[in-house]
Every structure is written in structure tokens, then in C-alpha cells.
Amino acid sequence: DVEPGKFYKGVVTRIEKYGAFINLNEQVRGLLRPRDMISLRAENLNVGDEIIVQAIDVRPEKREIDFKYIP
């Protein structure tokens, strides 16, 4: 289970104008929005990159997770 405030290692699987999709594993995926990329620009991300993200909002009923990148 993903808990708000905890840090996780994930892999960038898709990049859109509104953010990057980060997979923690095959069943868990969330969104890293540009406003939550402190000191990281979306254009510096590539599909396949491994990054550490913090879960900031977890909505299990919608199967949605928002992440924040903190260097």
C-alpha cells in the first residue's frame, strides 16, 4: 500500500504535457505533475528513468496517486 508522505522508487513510463506517469510496480502507477517537480523539469525526464518520488495524495477509491519529486 502506498502511504502519503512516504518515498518510493519508480520508473517513468509516459510523459505528457500535464505530467509524467510513474510506475512503482506493475499494479501501482501515479502522476508527477510539473508543479510538483521541484528542481526537475519535465523535459529532463525520459521514459525508463528511475527516480525517487514522494506520495502526496493517495485516492485508492479512484486508483489515483499524485507524486512530488524532491531532490
Results as ranks from 00 to 15, higher is better:
residue 30 G to C: 10
residue 56 I to N: 02
residue 13 T to R: 04
residue 65 I to Q: 03
residue 28 V to L: 13
residue 47 V to P: 05
residue 34 P to E: 11
residue 24 L to N: 00
residue 6 K to R: 12
residue 49 D to C: 07
residue 38 I to N: 13
residue 61 E to A: 11
residue 66 D to G: 07
residue 7 F to P: 01
residue 50 E to H: 14
residue 4 P to Q: 10
residue 10 G to T: 01
residue 29 R to M: 13
residue 28 V to C: 09
residue 64 E to Q: 14
residue 67 F to D: 03
residue 20 A to F: 12
residue 7 F to R: 05
residue 45 L to G: 01
residue 27 Q to W: 15
residue 50 E to A: 10
residue 56 I to Q: 05
residue 37 M to G: 06
residue 16 E to M: 14
residue 69 Y to D: 04
residue 33 R to T: 04
residue 15 I to Q: 01
residue 37 M to Y: 06
residue 33 R to H: 06
residue 17 K to T: 11
residue 53 V to H: 00
residue 20 A to W: 12
residue 28 V to H: 07
residue 9 K to A: 07
residue 52 I to A: 02
residue 28 V to E: 04
residue 51 I to R: 00
residue 3 E to G: 04
residue 54 Q to K: 08
residue 31 L to M: 08
residue 30 G to Y: 04
residue 45 L to E: 00
residue 47 V to L: 10
residue 13 T to G: 04
residue 64 E to H: 11
residue 15 I to P: 00
residue 39 S to C: 15
residue 1 D to C: 15
residue 68 K to H: 05
residue 4 P to C: 13
residue 28 V to A: 04
residue 32 L to Y: 03
residue 5 G to D: 03
residue 18 Y to F: 12
residue 11 V to N: 02
residue 71 P to R: 13
residue 62 K to Q: 10
residue 59 R to G: 04
residue 51 I to H: 00
residue 43 E to H: 14
residue 43 E to T: 11
residue 59 R to E: 03
residue 49 D to E: 06
residue 40 L to C: 11
residue 46 N to M: 13
residue 15 I to T: 02
residue 33 R to S: 06
residue 48 G to K: 01
residue 60 P to D: 06
residue 49 D to T: 05
residue 70 I to F: 11
residue 35 R to V: 09
residue 41 R to S: 12
residue 30 G to N: 02
residue 33 R to P: 03
residue 14 R to N: 04
residue 6 K to F: 08
residue 62 K to T: 11
residue 14 R to I: 05
residue 19 G to T: 08
residue 55 A to R: 02
residue 3 E to Y: 11
residue 29 R to Q: 14
residue 64 E to N: 07
residue 44 N to E: 15
residue 43 E to Y: 12
residue 44 N to G: 13
residue 39 S to D: 14
residue 13 T to A: 08
residue 22 I to M: 01
residue 56 I to Y: 11
residue 11 V to T: 11
residue 55 A to P: 02
residue 61 E to P: 05
residue 53 V to D: 00
residue 61 E to W: 08
residue 57 D to L: 11
residue 58 V to L: 05
residue 34 P to M: 14
residue 28 V to W: 15
residue 24 L to T: 01
residue 55 A to Y: 04
residue 7 F to N: 05
residue 51 I to D: 00
residue 46 N to A: 14
residue 47 V to D: 01
residue 49 D to S: 05
residue 49 D to Q: 10
residue 39 S to Q: 13
residue 8 Y to H: 00
residue 9 K to Q: 07
residue 52 I to T: 10
residue 5 G to W: 06
residue 28 V to S: 04
residue 14 R to W: 07
residue 61 E to G: 12
residue 34 P to G: 12
residue 10 G to M: 05
residue 26 E to H: 13
residue 45 L to A: 01
residue 54 Q to G: 02
residue 70 I to N: 09
residue 3 E to L: 13
residue 33 R to C: 09
residue 46 N to G: 09
residue 7 F to L: 07
residue 50 E to W: 15
residue 13 T to M: 07
residue 54 Q to A: 05
residue 5 G to H: 05
residue 41 R to W: 11
residue 62 K to F: 09
residue 64 E to W: 14
residue 15 I to D: 00
residue 25 N to Y: 08
residue 65 I to E: 03
residue 43 E to A: 13
residue 15 I to V: 10
residue 70 I to D: 11
residue 41 R to L: 13
residue 50 E to P: 08
residue 51 I to K: 00
residue 45 L to S: 00
residue 25 N to C: 11
residue 12 V to N: 00
residue 45 L to F: 06
residue 9 K to T: 08
residue 1 D to Q: 13
residue 53 V to T: 00
residue 21 F to A: 01
residue 32 L to V: 05
residue 23 N to R: 13
residue 16 E to Y: 12
residue 54 Q to V: 10
residue 18 Y to I: 10
residue 48 G to T: 01
residue 70 I to V: 14
residue 46 N to P: 00
residue 43 E to F: 13
residue 2 V to S: 03
residue 25 N to F: 09
residue 46 N to W: 10
residue 51 I to E: 00
residue 16 E to T: 15
residue 12 V to L: 04
residue 20 A to I: 15
residue 48 G to E: 01
residue 36 D to E: 06
residue 40 L to F: 09
residue 35 R to Q: 11
residue 4 P to A: 12
residue 30 G to L: 08
residue 63 R to W: 09
residue 31 L to N: 03
residue 45 L to M: 07
residue 6 K to V: 08
residue 71 P to A: 14
residue 58 V to K: 04
residue 58 V to Q: 04
residue 71 P to N: 09
residue 13 T to Q: 04
residue 25 N to G: 10
residue 57 D to C: 13
residue 31 L to G: 01
residue 18 Y to P: 02
residue 57 D to Q: 14
residue 66 D to R: 14
residue 5 G to I: 03
residue 39 S to I: 11
residue 27 Q to N: 14
residue 52 I to N: 02
residue 55 A to K: 02
residue 11 V to W: 12
residue 70 I to R: 06
residue 26 E to A: 15
residue 67 F to W: 09
residue 24 L to S: 01
residue 10 G to P: 00
residue 69 Y to I: 05
residue 37 M to P: 03
residue 64 E to F: 13
residue 40 L to M: 11
residue 12 V to W: 01
residue 14 R to Y: 05
residue 53 V to M: 07
residue 56 I to V: 10
residue 48 G to L: 02
residue 51 I to N: 00
residue 41 R to I: 10
residue 29 R to S: 12
residue 23 N to S: 15
residue 63 R to S: 11
residue 68 K to L: 10
residue 43 E to V: 12
residue 32 L to G: 02
residue 71 P to E: 11
residue 26 E to T: 13
residue 46 N to V: 12
residue 60 P to M: 10
residue 16 E to I: 08
residue 38 I to H: 13
residue 22 I to T: 00
residue 69 Y to G: 03
residue 22 I to Y: 01
residue 66 D to K: 12
residue 2 V to T: 03
residue 57 D to E: 14
residue 3 E to D: 06
residue 49 D to M: 14
residue 30 G to D: 02
residue 32 L to P: 02
residue 9 K to M: 09
residue 10 G to N: 01
residue 57 D to A: 15
residue 31 L to K: 05
residue 4 P to D: 05
residue 23 N to D: 10
residue 65 I to S: 02
residue 15 I to H: 01
residue 57 D to W: 09
residue 59 R to A: 04
residue 17 K to S: 12
residue 36 D to N: 14
residue 3 E to I: 15
residue 5 G to M: 06
residue 40 L to G: 06
residue 58 V to P: 04
residue 57 D to V: 13
residue 58 V to S: 06
residue 36 D to K: 05
residue 3 E to N: 06
residue 37 M to W: 07
residue 24 L to P: 01
residue 54 Q to I: 11
residue 18 Y to Q: 07
residue 49 D to A: 06
residue 24 L to Y: 01
residue 66 D to C: 12
residue 67 F to T: 03
residue 38 I to K: 11
residue 24 L to C: 07
residue 3 E to A: 09
residue 36 D to G: 07
residue 12 V to S: 00
residue 69 Y to P: 03
residue 4 P to S: 09
residue 50 E to T: 15
residue 35 R to L: 08
residue 44 N to Y: 12
residue 19 G to S: 04
residue 20 A to P: 01
residue 18 Y to C: 08
residue 32 L to N: 02
residue 51 I to Y: 02
residue 54 Q to C: 12
residue 13 T to W: 05
residue 59 R to H: 05
residue 31 L to C: 08
residue 2 V to E: 02
residue 28 V to G: 04
residue 4 P to W: 07
residue 4 P to V: 15
residue 50 E to M: 14
residue 68 K to P: 03
residue 35 R to C: 10
residue 68 K to S: 09
residue 54 Q to S: 03
residue 12 V to C: 04
residue 20 A to D: 01
residue 40 L to T: 07
residue 7 F to D: 01
residue 58 V to I: 09
residue 66 D to M: 13
residue 34 P to R: 15
residue 32 L to T: 02
residue 51 I to T: 00
residue 22 I to V: 11
residue 40 L to K: 06
residue 40 L to W: 08
residue 33 R to Q: 05
residue 55 A to W: 06
residue 5 G to V: 03
residue 64 E to K: 07
residue 3 E to P: 06
residue 30 G to W: 05
residue 3 E to H: 12
residue 6 K to E: 05
residue 55 A to T: 05
residue 19 G to W: 10
residue 64 E to R: 10
residue 7 F to W: 11
residue 49 D to W: 06
residue 56 I to H: 05
residue 66 D to F: 15
residue 21 F to Q: 04
residue 26 E to Q: 13
residue 9 K to D: 01
residue 8 Y to C: 03
residue 13 T to F: 05
residue 17 K to L: 10
residue 28 V to P: 02
residue 49 D to H: 04
residue 19 G to C: 10
residue 69 Y to H: 06
residue 60 P to Q: 08
residue 26 E to N: 13
residue 66 D to S: 11
residue 30 G to E: 03
residue 53 V to W: 02
residue 68 K to V: 09
residue 25 N to Q: 06
residue 32 L to Q: 02
residue 58 V to T: 06
residue 9 K to R: 13
residue 26 E to P: 14
residue 68 K to Y: 07
residue 35 R to T: 09
residue 6 K to H: 10
residue 62 K to H: 08
residue 69 Y to R: 03
residue 69 Y to T: 04
residue 6 K to M: 09
residue 28 V to Y: 09
residue 52 I to Y: 10
residue 63 R to Y: 10
residue 3 E to M: 13
residue 55 A to S: 02
residue 41 R to A: 11
residue 54 Q to H: 04
residue 30 G to H: 02
residue 10 G to D: 01
residue 65 I to G: 03
residue 40 L to N: 06
residue 46 N to C: 14
residue 66 D to I: 15
residue 11 V to G: 00
residue 61 E to M: 08
residue 37 M to V: 07
residue 41 R to N: 10
residue 50 E to G: 05
residue 47 V to N: 01
residue 52 I to D: 02
residue 41 R to G: 12
residue 30 G to K: 02
residue 61 E to Q: 10
residue 13 T to S: 10
residue 10 G to C: 08
residue 52 I to W: 15
residue 39 S to N: 14
residue 43 E to L: 13
residue 38 I to L: 10
residue 21 F to R: 02
residue 46 N to S: 14
residue 63 R to P: 06
residue 36 D to I: 09
residue 27 Q to E: 12
residue 44 N to M: 14
residue 42 A to L: 15
residue 35 R to W: 07
residue 1 D to K: 13
residue 29 R to W: 14
residue 51 I to A: 00
residue 68 K to G: 11
residue 63 R to T: 07
residue 56 I to E: 03
residue 7 F to A: 03
residue 29 R to H: 09
residue 1 D to A: 13
residue 62 K to C: 11
residue 5 G to A: 03
residue 67 F to Y: 03
residue 59 R to S: 05
residue 33 R to K: 08
residue 36 D to H: 12
residue 25 N to H: 07
residue 69 Y to K: 03
residue 2 V to G: 02
residue 47 V to I: 13
residue 40 L to Q: 05
residue 9 K to H: 10
residue 8 Y to G: 00
residue 40 L to R: 05
residue 14 R to M: 06
residue 64 E to Y: 14
residue 37 M to I: 07
residue 12 V to R: 00
residue 27 Q to Y: 14
residue 25 N to W: 10
residue 70 I to C: 10
residue 43 E to D: 13
residue 58 V to F: 07
residue 50 E to K: 12
residue 2 V to N: 04
residue 26 E to I: 13
residue 8 Y to N: 00
residue 16 E to R: 08
residue 29 R to E: 08
residue 52 I to S: 03
residue 57 D to F: 12
residue 25 N to S: 14
residue 59 R to K: 05
residue 48 G to M: 02
residue 67 F to K: 02
residue 66 D to N: 08
residue 51 I to L: 09
residue 35 R to Y: 07
residue 62 K to E: 08
residue 42 A to N: 10
residue 1 D to S: 13
residue 70 I to K: 05
residue 11 V to K: 10
residue 12 V to A: 00
residue 51 I to Q: 00
residue 47 V to S: 01
residue 19 G to Q: 07
residue 33 R to F: 05
residue 3 E to Q: 14
residue 22 I to N: 00
residue 17 K to M: 08
residue 13 T to K: 04
residue 42 A to D: 06
residue 55 A to Q: 02
residue 33 R to I: 10
